[in-house]
Design a protein around this nucleic acid. Structure first.
Lengths: 332, 332
DNA sequence: CAATTGCGTTAGAGCGCTCTAAATCTTACG
DNA sequence: CGTAAGATTTAGAGCGCTCTAACGCAATTG
């Protein structure tokens, strides 16, 4: 029942254990005959190298540990694909652990990864606080993807939220809107930067910003919209903290008898799956998630292979995906 | 730079390596004084056990390998949470690898997991074919979650698709519908069972089934709906293969000037995130995903710990989540 | 033909840990 | 005080692999 080892293969092929090792790592200095024999024996036995033994002997694992904030969130999925593609190019395995939207669970995930001796940590939208990240990055190169703040000790890959919000505002203004309300992300980590970006963009265009408290969930849009309706101060455009909030805005507006985009235009953020749905068709700010994932790997590899030690920060440029939720304001 | 080992800790604490091992596995037969000393030394050194060494020495890993068909798909995310929660209860770590909707990538993922000596494999919606699964389950206990077919050698956790479809059909009929069209899943793995369920349910209620070819994507609904519109044979209700197809139906119907649910009711399948969005509000068939995940772990653990060898199949009962996309048909 | 080279192969130590068996230390009891 | 029983602690082998150094052998050279 117990699995075959190199020893078993060596015996069967009539060679030494070391030779089997060479074949498994396809070294060039093995005669074709022996290589053939070894491969054949391995095949017959269903031999599979034991990574634990290898990692122990090599003192390196060629493995990276990734922790995803929430495996539910399709925003992160795209980052995962970017990470995997790049890691694959460099011959690294990527182990994924789910953060579960819970700092404590994430902390345990970090611990697990470290015990697995991963060569680097890729934290995608982490809930961890600065201290945790400092502590992790003291042990192993760490890169944080898609989290607004600067992470002492770790590398950071983000997109420029101020630029993204400016894109959204400018789009609305070009359509002719002047009354644009922002529903913010409340305590969410990216909220601050996005609100600031919105406000700066509005002011620089000579418009008065109006920010309402939202959140990161569909329901969070509702109270904001209801308040606008009640005070009879409905703007001609709403710029939401993210797509989910925008989706909430969509349904609340419709429930209030307003049509999108005829009465009110709506812009989201993140270009998730939701925005793409035909029935939603949200204009939204797109972050180059795949590229973010790739850069995360490149960055962290610079530490592993070229032993860079200074933290890097890469801030990518977002783009705007224009769909059917925005249109010129109705002529008054 | 190199990480501290048990040896280092032992020296610092003035004890033997073995004692450190005992403390790390919190054995009861260690004096408080020594335990204290060891923990203190470990703390100071930032010691972290090396799982590879441990796994090698123990000849077991307490680790399970999970492969997710597509990390994009939120349907699977919920299963993941169920798996994780249950695995945690039993003290197993779960390593996640992304199948990437690609059989070949999945095959490599299986290989990676096996090399990591996982004690079981949990395949969530696998793209692998029967042979692959047979081969995997010959090496390690394997459970397949949410795939319609029977998997020789492996355990299977599904929900009963025939029952689920019957639920949907009965709901529509109770609302008063008699003209109900099904847009199927084309080549999708669950398509067969769902179509069959739909047809049986219709016939048993004395209604004539009408099935159109669809797919598993939003765009796949479009041509089906367009055909219905063109041939002037629009039914009063549409039952889609899954939520995404239902979403496609929603937007295509609206583009054709038909209102949901006033003119046409729409039912989806899977109760994904999409269905929950207020703006979609799809009536849909719910699979108890969290429970499926939990059962996957239980099942596989029976093989590991109680060494069951006969394949099991668990078929759970789906439920219906009624939302706003269904209503009684307009009176003719 | 002896000496040199280089290729293919192998012995054996060591990676960090667990685990068994044996050693050592306490404590209790007659 | 001696000794058995029990409680702690430790030595040392071994998990499956890689890697260095060395070995055997055929081809090459002067």
């Amino acid at each position: 029942m117990s699995r075959p080892t190199m020893e078993t293969v060596a015996e069967r092929a009539g060679v030494s254990r070391a030779l089997v090792s060479l074949v498994m790592n396809n070294s060039s200095k093995v005669s074709d005959a022996k290589r053939e024999a070894v491969l054949h024996a391995a095949e017959q036995l269903g031999y599979r190298p034991n990574l634990h033994a290898r990692n122990l002997a090599q003192a390196r694992t060629k493995t990276l540990g990734m922790i995803i904030n929430d495996i539910h969130n399709p925003f992160f999925a795209e980052v995962v694909y970017g990470v995997e593609a790049a890691a694959d190019d460099y011959g690294f395995d990527v182990l994924i652990l789910n953060g579960g939207r819970d700092a404590e669970k994430e902390r345990r995930a970090v611990e697990t990864h470290l015990q697995f001796q991963v060569e680097a940590l890729i934290l995608v939208g982490p809930k961890l606080d600065d201290d945790d990240i400092v502590r992790a990055s003291a042990v192993v190169p760490t890169v944080v993807v898609a989290s607004g703040r600067d992470n002492p000790g770790a590398d950071t890959i983000t997109t420029d939220d101020e630029r993204g919000t400016a894109l959204a505002v400018r789009h609305l203004v070009e359509l002719g809107h002047t009354d644009i309300v922002h529903i913010d992300g409340a305590a969410n980590i990216s909220s601050r930067a996005r609100s600031r970006g919105y406000e700066n963009a509005m002011r620089s265009l000579g418009l008065e910003p109006r920010t309402l408290r939202g959140g990161d969930d569909e329901a969070d849009a509702e109270s904001a919209i209801v308040k606008l309706a009640e005070t009879d101060s409905m703007p001609t455009a709403i710029f939401a903290f993210n797509d989910l909030v925008a989706a909430g805005a969509l349904s609340t507006l419709e429930a209030a008898g307003l049509r999108v985009p005829d009465d009110v235009s709506v812009v989201g953020y993140d270009n998730t799956f939701i925005a793409e749905l035909n029935h939603m068709s949200l204009t939204t700010v797109n972050q180059p998630r795949h590229q973010m994932g790739q850069l995360a790997i490149r960055t962290v590899l610079e530490r592993i292979e070229d032993d860079r030690t200074e933290p890097t920060r890469i801030d990518l440029a977002p783009t705007l995906s224009v769909r059917r939720s925005t249109a010129p304001p109705r002529k008054a």
